[in-house]
Each structure stands twice: as C-alpha cells, then as structure tokens.
C-alpha cells in the first residue's frame, strides 16, 4: 500500500469517527492532532504541531450528501 492510499484511508476513517468536526491529522503518523466543531480551536493545535516540524492534514466531512454543480 502506498503512502497516498494510506492517507486516503486514514482520512476517510477520521471523518467517519468525527463527522461533525474539523480534524487535523499528523501527516506522518495519522494521529489526531486536534479536533473540534469550531475550527478556531483546532488552529492553535495545528500551529503547535507545525512548530514541532510536523505537517497537518486538515479534514472536514461534508455536512450532508453534496450535489456538486460547479
């Protein structure tokens, strides 16, 4: 399995576990850095992770089934 396939899988799992939150994952370990319904509460945790040299992945599950008309 490639890193990208793992990333897609972990992102899907995280969004299913926390469907109403903004989630920040560590891109290397896929650990949850922070999550909250309020993105402003996640940003400081992401800032701290970036200061430690980590790369966050930002995720939010669509609130409802979306029909794209772009």
């Amino acid at each position: 399995m490639t890193y990208y396939e793992q990333l897609v899988q972990h992102a899907a799992d995280a969004m299913d576990r926390h469907p109403r939150s903004t989630i920040a994952l560590d891109a290397e370990t896929f650990e949850v850095i922070g999550r909250s319904k309020d993105i402003s509460k996640v940003v400081p945790k992401m800032d701290a992770a970036v200061a430690q040299g980590r790369t966050p992945v930002i995720l939010e599950k669509p609130r409802h089934p979306e029909t794209w008309i772009l």
Partner: peptide, 11 residues
C-alpha cells in the same frame, strides 16, 4: 513556508 495537506477538487 508552512505546509499542510488539504483536499482539493480538480475543477
């Protein structure tokens, strides 16, 4: 130079 992964629709 802060780097973060984000999902982007190819539109």
């Amino acid at each position: 130079k802060r780097k973060q992964l984000f999902q982007m629709l190819v539109d």
